[in-house]
Simulated scan of single mutants.
Amino acid sequence: MRPELIVAEKEFRDHLASKRFLAIFAILMLLSFYGVYSGMDAYNKRLDQYKNPGLVMDQPFMKEAVESLQKEIQDAEARGDSPESIQALKDQLSLLTNPPMPSVLEVFNSMVIFFTFLGMILGAAMGFDQISKERDEGTLKFLVSSPIYRDAIINGKAIGAIATLAVALAAAFLLAIAIVMFRGVVPGLDDMLRIAAFFVAALLYCTVFFAIAMMMSAITKSTSMSVICTVGLVVLLIVFSILALVVSGFIAQAIVGPAPPIDYGSLLNNSTGSANVSYIVSNSEYMNYTTRLVAMEFQISDAITTVSPVNDFGGLMGMGVGGIGNAILSKTPVQSFSLVATTSARQVSLLDSLASVWVKIFVLIVEMVVAFAVSYVAFMRMDVR
């Protein structure tokens, strides 16, 4: 057996027996169970609404929204707006009057947020003491003096940890699929392919944080310092995402310009004093301005935070909007950065979904490779005397 695999086997067994890993794994399984089970309830409700559209259309709010959109389409055609904008309004009206059949993939969408934060913790927890712990306990000197080259040690540690991550995620995904099938829903071939792609993306995301934590373990002099640096980096990424959203708001405001004037008398509902939804929807100038402003703000924030693994996988602030997970689990092209839903009935292939977020996938791969490369160089040059 190759030396790397010998080290990997030992690391794999050590991780599976680790109380730290078992605790995080238990939380992962519980959250997966809760997310999928609650997602199935939401899926069944949407399925009932799809089968009985009259139950939804009879609601006053829906009637008001449909009438407002119909009037907006008539006004847009009278003004001679572009065919694209008119078609977008018609697509929105079609979504309200003829909603598409819900997909079982929506159930797995609830797992995006869980994996975004718990996957980050799992990967970092497995990597922050990969090297520093061996150095603190004095076993690193024994390892490098054994008939195993240093590159086999560092590579074996990485292989063993990634294999453990794969087992943990596979268990969570199998649990989710079992719950879905137990509730009477059988995913189709395309659904299974997308779920498999989501699994690979989640594993890549966890591996990025493992690689970053392992890098900190290799370049710092103690486990405590490695923990501080790893936690500090995670906090920095979260703060960076928040600041990017704030800064993007100012930039978007400067690009789009000031808001159009609003008739505040019409904006308020005279009977209740609350916001008049009909006025907001029918006021095309204000609605178009708000849509452009929000879309511009989110797009700028998304571009700035491309360097953040959290935003790449989990989308804006890790909330599942516009990230890799959301793109893989969406069969229709969704413009995430919009004030209103603008999905279309046209379905896209898995390759098209991946192509829409290829930059984010590429960034995750680059971050993983760079972190592993720094760990490798630091370990090969480390003085263990």
Rank of each mutant, 00 (worst) to 15 (best):
V239L: 14
I238R: 00
F199E: 06
C229W: 14
V234G: 02
M216T: 10
L204A: 12
A244N: 00
I238A: 05
L193I: 12
I219L: 11
V231L: 15
V208H: 02
A213H: 03
F240K: 06
L203Y: 08
I195M: 14
I219H: 09
L233D: 02
L204P: 07
V200N: 07
I242Y: 04
S217D: 02
V200Q: 10
L203T: 03
T220I: 10
A213T: 00
G232Q: 06
C206V: 04
L236A: 15
M216D: 08
A202N: 09
R194Y: 10
T223R: 08
T230R: 03
C229F: 15
V239G: 11
V234S: 07
F240Y: 13
L193D: 12
V200H: 11
A196Q: 07
K221R: 14
T223Y: 04
C206I: 06
L193M: 14
I212E: 00
T223C: 03
A196H: 12
F199M: 09
I195R: 13
A244I: 00
L243P: 07
L237T: 03
A218D: 02
S217I: 01
G232V: 07
S224M: 15
A201S: 12
A202C: 10
L193Q: 15
V231P: 06
T230L: 05
A202V: 12
A197C: 11
F240C: 07
S217V: 01
M215W: 04
A218Q: 02
V227S: 13
T220E: 11
T207W: 05
